[in-house]
Simulated scan of single mutants.
Amino acid sequence: METAELVTFGGSGLDRAEDLRRDPEALAALRARPGARRVLLRAGEPLVEGSEAAPRLARRPIEGAASEGLVFLGREGDEGVWAEAVESAEEGEGRWGDLRGVMARLSPRDAELAATGKAVLGWHTSHGFCSACGTRSRPAPAGWRRDCPSCGTQHFPRTDPVVIMLVTHGNDVLVGRSPGWPEGMFSLLAGFMEPGETVEAAVRREVWEEAGVRVGRVGYLASQPWPFPASLMLGCRGEALTREIAVDPQELEAALWVPRERMMGVFEGRDPEIRAPRHGAIAAFLLREWLADRLD
């Protein structure tokens, strides 16, 4: 897909400068530059500024920030940018934004910085103890590792792979809804991959388990980092071999086949029963590409 990197949270070309994570002196020198900045997150919500229609990720000077709580995100030009978890904004204007709500209106660079910061800071919050011996671990200087002072084990942020499937049969696409979703909202089927499983096998298993539909040929389309809390969505296309639906109520509230013409009406807001997936989610992206015949 030529448009694969246009998905939200992808394609900004951020220089993550991984080599600097292992060079404390160079990292300290970058932090000491007047242009060094940090983005702030409160309970996973980024500090944004600007209008509601076009929010921007707020960037604050790094001077005065405690080094232990910072995660080095990378370089923008010659300057470094970090992420920090805080309780409140310290200076300047801004407001806390729900990342799900603002993600599609942020620039690609702001979205990538916010997603990366949210995922890594969230990992620090939930992985404060060594899984080998139970001792409280310590963050490494760049924030991309935690070290155990007792047994020496090093721990790194995790990303959980999730397959999300555009399953078609002729002119129809398979969609479902989970319990608790907003009324009328349907999306593509998705599920976590299991250890020892290929992407293709995960697609076929998840569709069968959730909707009772058999899938044949599977192909990869696009991916999306999804920091809720730390997943990588692997967008795939699958060709259904069967049409009969048997919903697993533990997984889905409903599932149905939607013709292309009706799905066009859904995205235009004209369907009285079905709402499109959230704008900015890879499900909406893949469905729009399918409707525009841009999957290949």
Rank of each mutant, 00 (worst) to 15 (best):
V199G: 03
F156I: 05
D248F: 06
G191K: 12
A29P: 00
C148D: 04
S231K: 14
H124R: 15
W290S: 06
E76N: 03
E93V: 10
G117S: 07
L295D: 01
E79P: 00
R294C: 02
S51T: 15
W123T: 05
G97I: 01
E79Q: 12
D271S: 06
R260L: 13
G77I: 13
P139F: 09
R145K: 15
V39H: 02
L188D: 02
G143A: 09
V163D: 03
E194H: 11
A85S: 15
A255D: 03
A240T: 12
L30C: 09
E91I: 02
P272D: 07
A89P: 13
S12K: 05
C148F: 11
F285W: 14
L256G: 04
A246Y: 11
Q224R: 05
D248C: 09
G235N: 04
V266D: 07
R56S: 10
V71W: 05
F267W: 10
G101F: 01
V266R: 01
L70H: 03
C130F: 09
V218M: 03
L20G: 08
A65V: 02
T8Y: 00
P272R: 03
A104M: 01
V163A: 12
S223L: 03
T198S: 15
S231M: 10
C236V: 03
R288S: 09
R31V: 02
G184N: 02
A254K: 10
D172L: 12
A89Y: 00
G184T: 10
P227N: 07
L166W: 04
P24L: 09
E91M: 07
T125R: 15
S12M: 04
R75K: 14
R31G: 04
C236Q: 04
R109W: 06
T159Y: 02
K118D: 07
V218G: 06
